[in-house]
Design a protein around this nucleic acid. Sequence first.
RNA 1: GUCCCCAUCGUCCAGCGGUCAGGACGCAGCCCUUUCAAGGCUGAGACUCGGGUUCGAUUCCCGAUGGGGACGCCA
Length: 493
Amino acid sequence: MRVRFAPSPTGQLHVGNVRTALFNWLLARRHGGTFILRIEDTDRERSTRASETAMIADLRWLGLTWDEGPDAGGPFAPYRQSERTARYDEVAADLRARGRAYFCFCTPAQLEDERQAALASGRPPRYSGRCRAIDPAEAARRVEAGEPAALRFAVPEGDRDVTFHDAVRGDVTVNTSIIGDFVIVRSGGSPAYNFAVVVDDADMQVTTVIRGEDHISNTPRQLLIYEALGQPAPAFAHLSLVLGADHAPLSKRHGVTSVSEFRARGYLPEALVNYLALLGWSPGEGEEIVPIDEMIRRFDLSTVSHSAAVFDFDKLAWMNRQYMRRLPASRIAADAMPYLQQRGVVTGATAEALAYVESLLPMVVGSVDRLEEIGDRVAFLFAWDAAEARRLVEVESDGPRAVEAFAEAVRATGPLVDRETFRAAATRARELCGLKGRALFHPIRVALTAADSGPELDIAVPAIERGATLPASAGVARVSSCLERLRAVAGQR
RNA sequence: GUCCCCAUCGUCCAGCGGUCAGGACGCAGCCCUUUCAAGGCUGAGACUCGGGUUCGAUUCCCGAUGGGGACGCCA
């Protein structure tokens, strides 16, 4: 089995395309087949190498590895359409020599007028086939003389049904009478999509073409080319589209849609892949968190949904939270470093900094959806605002009393390095002031964190103390100790 | 306009002739709790409509309706 993902490098890699890539990849891995990455850069205007590079990086980040591609090489190289022009020229010449394609001299303006007229009078807006009547020898002379011409495929006359079996939706039939002669080589000499895909898929021996539903009506055209070429056609599978909440195809105006943006916002590749897999496919019973190996084991095109799916950002967020909790802490800590560095909370990627960040994870994981949000949740460690803390303490009727009792307890116990020490200090404070429950703990919280909500105190407090012992060389922003904070709030009064 | 595809809770999926129509996200309530979350439990919430076929249709067939796609010298 040979499948391919063939993006055109004209921008960012979109999650809808990633889903297509993923389904191709899953099928290849499931059957021990080959996954090919092919770059469809025939549109010279819009394709850029920067976009190609970015897409490759995104695919790598997602873990969708390919066996053949522009960088990896392979037996059917090159895998970049812009480097395959000689091959397209050859096939185009052959088609023309055999009367299956002809030169068209119509101007864009002419074509546009015809289309408008057809639309206005309610006829299908397709090419009239006018240039088909031009004698091939004369056409060749005109081209020789430098007249610009596109090459069109000569769709067989008469109405004939073209049927193909779609692996996700069954048989699809289209009548050739609705297909106008379409351009296969632009007047500039570059191959048009319908032509290049067929040549490439045939040359690269692709056995199954999995792509978006928007290509379903292109399939009959491509089948006609396969036929004219005397090549066997691959199997086809068309995936439904990914929509936004308004049921319009997912686009920038729905929010974040490109892989690089999801990455920048702190989504994990495993979560994105898992979410996307479940958008239009289900592994069977229950389970939403599906390890990649399990997906490979279970994936099958016949169980892919026929209908369009709405992208649910909330569910993705939930999924990401699940992965933040399940993936090894060392991995999450490492991935979170760039975000913390960006905030200036971590200044150097030392082993000590990494270890400290990892130690903070139990405090944030589960309460945060994305890596990017970790910084907010731990901000109280590094940016503690004494005035704000004092203000919040005073809002509580017994606030100052509770804080003073706690401060005295801490002076006795020393640094609250672990949960037990913290609890012992809290117990001592309760004995000193007689306050308990919220009346005791809330003042302690606001005094120590300058915020009235946050992580559980018995893990937040030791985190403060651990941070306070870190040397400057650790590359972590300064954390003031509990005692320092208490002194500043309770004062020496 | 023409052709093609699609149709189960708000959303994503299960269901593949007989089910109290199941799960997940989200939502509501309760519990837990020193706060916000998280977590646990409970709950509300769907078979688009009309014809067939059948003893029996969410499930099969036809039509309508609705949604989407295509009709480019974009892919």
